[in-house]
Design a protein around this nucleic acid. Structure first.
Lengths: 342, 342
DNA sequence: CGCAGCCATGAGCAAATGCTCACCGATGCA
DNA sequence: TGCATCGGTGAGCATTTGCTCATGGCTGCG
């Protein structure tokens, strides 16, 4: 749809197109004026202008700052049916990169959020950096709600409750914490906790959010879920062997975006993929290098609306997607995957 | 109006403009979609896009064939209030240049004329070349009428009657000849001729034309009016001394476009400048080198709607216009000069 | 030579766009 | 501190644009 056949034009045809394009794009005449001038019908002028554009007689170039990767972003949007994609390139330092991604995510939120918004927030290192850069121009009456429980084994600033608090502080909004662990030892305990009024209410609040801010986790031994003590290396290895490539809010998916059904699922206190689907805009913030498979899986699950990512991962994901087509039953990049099979 | 202050943009502002422009011009989203996406109001998106364009973030370039002089044409249009200008560059050979100009004029007529049109035609060398190239795709029911009398002293193909006949033959239309000389020896003879039914009718027909095809004559000793024997070198010298720089249909004007009142005027059998003003589209075909002063005068007279000209004259006329501003009372390039003072 | 299918054409309409205007909040001056 | 001014903002409308569709001429095939 982008790279049409640059059909060969005859010389006089070329001239006409160029003339029309000049009048329209440079001199800013209306199509009707031009039609009168050239003794053509208005629709014909329209068609010729269209042709001028598609055939490259009219070249529209966006003088983008060199650090913008607009082309890459468009590819991501189109390939995965995202409503937006933001790619940052901050050089080779992984830390600087994470900060850059967080900053762009913060900027996006500043633009996107307005009074009355409710934002569900996940854990994660990249997500944890967002509050540092989140400084809206004016006070915003926004509520940030934890979308999953906390993990005692990890640094406080990457826990959802803490992130919510910091984000709320940044804009003068409110924070709603989820006073529960992310993972518990058994289904029974999970259900008991879910029966708690405070916990159920918080999660419900998160489920009603209009925006979600999430990270994407991998399945290597050093991933956040393991570092935070939610899962053991054995457990993550078992998930890997089941095909899992990454997670959002502890919900693991395989490379085709299908959920990986596993017992861990039932010990999780977090929004589910279904919940996320009902959230208007799910913003994923990813920066750790070498997570392309995780990102690809999650993107194919079709829950992400906006992806904020570093350039390396962005290219890698697009490469992967091109070389590892999605399996049947879930078309690659289908913007609206059917929910039935989940 | 074209070269606005390329205001300096802050970095994030620049980014936003580039992003919006990308979405609009490259991805072809609507302004409303973009507004929703960026959480802005639609009018704001519109204004930002406008700014993006004026500030040069969006660069629209017309890949014009190198032989097109679109920029020059726009300047001519704007400076002289023309409805169209066509500039040809055919290298250094004056003959080739004249042919190129005639060819472009012919093309223009092919586009412009349609069934029922009446075209008034003047004499001239460049005009005389037009019929050779005038080959409309289909038969056209167009009537070509001589707008001035003939001149026995000049080659037949540059006489209006002959040009009309050839043009009519080219498209299968009709030719209406004016069987009278262009100049006669006295006012009395002119008036007698004008009293002739046939002559009056022909001239009247020409005056009703919707299009006129005219040449622009100079005031040098070798100009068409002298070569054709209409005027002697003494007469043209006197006209020069009165400030005349050029003529259309034998009507001389000075460098500011004001008619040069002279006795010759009354011995002329041709449409007047007033008549031309009432013709919808006056197409001037000019190619002889070194006629810029003549062209400038005629353009300032405000009768020309479409100018077909070689590149050398085009540049020279614009130069002249910039350096020799029109005198008070007739603003330079005024597209609609008042008719009162004529 | 006749016919079917095709592309090109312009009428007409729905959507998108540009623009005007009244309003609001910020800034600067008294 | 109060007031005037100005730049920016979104509602609402007129214009412009994109698109669909019925029509007609042309081409190629029978």
């Amino acid at each position: 749809m982008r790279d049409e056949l640059r059909e060969e034009l005859r010389e006089d045809e070329y001239e006409l197109l160029a003339r029309l394009a000049q009048r329209y794009y440079v001199d800013e005449r209306t199509q009707e004026e031009i039609a009168r001038e050239f003794a053509l019908s208005r629709p014909k002028v329209q068609r010729l202008l269209d042709r001028a554009r598609r055939s490259g007689v009219v070249a529209i170039h966006i003088q983008a700052p060199p650090w913008l990767r607009l082309e890459l972003e468009s590819q991501l949007r189109e390939t995965f049916g995202l409503s937006d994609a933001i790619v940052c390139s901050a050089g080779s330092d992984p830390l600087a990169e994470r900060e850059a991604v967080a900053q762009r995510a913060a900027r996006y939120l500043e633009r996107r959020l307005h009074d009355g918004c409710v934002v569900a927030v996940s854990h994660g290192r990249a997500v944890g950096e967002v509050p540092r850069f989140f400084r809206p121009g004016s006070r915003l009456d926004v509520t940030f709600v934890s979308a999953m429980g906390g993990s005692p084994g990890v640094a406080a600033p990457t826990n959802p409750n803490e992130i919510c608090r910091a984000l709320a502080a940044g804009c003068g909004g409110q924070a709603v914490s989820l006073y529960a662990p992310a993972y518990v030892e058994s289904v029974e305990i999970r259900d008991q906790l879910l029966a708690q009024e405070a916990i159920a209410q918080s999660l419900d609040r998160a489920a009603q959010a209009s925006v979600a801010l999430v990270g994407i986790g991998g399945t290597d031994d050093g991933c956040t879920m393991v570092r935070s003590g939610c899962l053991t290396t054995d457990e993550i290895a078992r998930l890997r062997s089941q095909g899992a490539v990454g997670d959002v809010l502890g919900n693991y998916v395989d490379i085709d975006g299908r959920p990986v059904a596993s017992p861990h699922q039932d010990r999780l206190l977090a929004l589910t993929v279904e919940h996320l689907r009902r959230v208007g805009t799910v913003v994923a913030v990813v920066s750790e290098p070498e997570k392309p498979r995780a990102i690809l899986g999650i993107l194919r699950a079709g829950v992400i609306g906006v992806l904020v990512v570093d350039e390396g991962n962005a290219r890698a994901v697009l490469d992967l997607a091109a070389h590892e087509p999605a399996m049947a039953g879930r078309a690659g990049g289908d913007p609206l995957p059917s929910q039935g099979e989940v």
